[in-house]
Design a protein around this nucleic acid. Sequence first.
DNA 1: TTTTATACTATCCTTTTTGACCGTTATTGT
DNA 2: ACAATAACGGTCAAAAAGGATAGTATAAAA
Lengths: 112, 112
Amino acid sequence: MHTFKGKEYPCCTSLTMGIIGGKWKTVILFYLIGGKLRYSELRKKMGSVTERTLSLQLQQLQEDGVIERKVYYNKPPLKVEYSLTEFGKTLIPLLENIAQWGDYALEHHAKN
Amino acid sequence: MHTFKGKEYPCCTSLTMGIIGGKWKTVILFYLIGGKLRYSELRKKMGSVTERTLSLQLQQLQEDGVIERKVYYNKPPLKVEYSLTEFGKTLIPLLENIAQWGDYALEHHAKN
DNA sequence: TTTTATACTATCCTTTTTGACCGTTATTGT
DNA sequence: ACAATAACGGTCAAAAAGGATAGTATAAAA
């Protein structure tokens, strides 16, 4: 049994999944590999997500320390940018692996 | 938008997560890397899972074609063994990557 | 002046996931 | 005779995740 940021996980694989799991987190992280993005840019890239869900996921990723949020207060309109932290960048090889396997599965087993 | 086994995913990363995501699936798959295991062996290794949840997860992994179930009817007691399919074996590098990152996170960021 | 854009938050609700607990069939060990 | 093991499935309930919709503040654009 492992503990990370106050949550308990039965295995090191489930710890990873606790951080990047769920319907949208890997999608967000995958887009952020390319560099920082504003809230609205993320939303456009991820067509079907609702605003509430997106901001919840962003909050959780921040809490786990994998992304950071920077606000530019000078001269509205408000500008907020999200990016991977140094810790979050250690996820990049894994995220690419996940994306590659998804592509592979589609190509080789997409009968239906 | 991608479709796999009748389900829709907005991104190739979420397709992968749809197959290996959830609280227990990576744990099961990770144990199966070492070779086939009986239902009861899996249960002992995964202390806190309930039987119903374990069998549900096993069913879903079968439906997605990553594990297979073999029953030995000759001479009860019933014996059932689970193992990775050839398709499931293509997940091994990814699963190891996931486990390694979990370990890494624990070592470097386990303040609490 | 109404609309648009930005970056959210608040409610409420539905769906999905997970857990607790019990029942089943058959056989071997004590 | 009775308990234990094996491998589940069924029912109910709680918890977690996700979606729909609307509202906030500010300022620039039409």
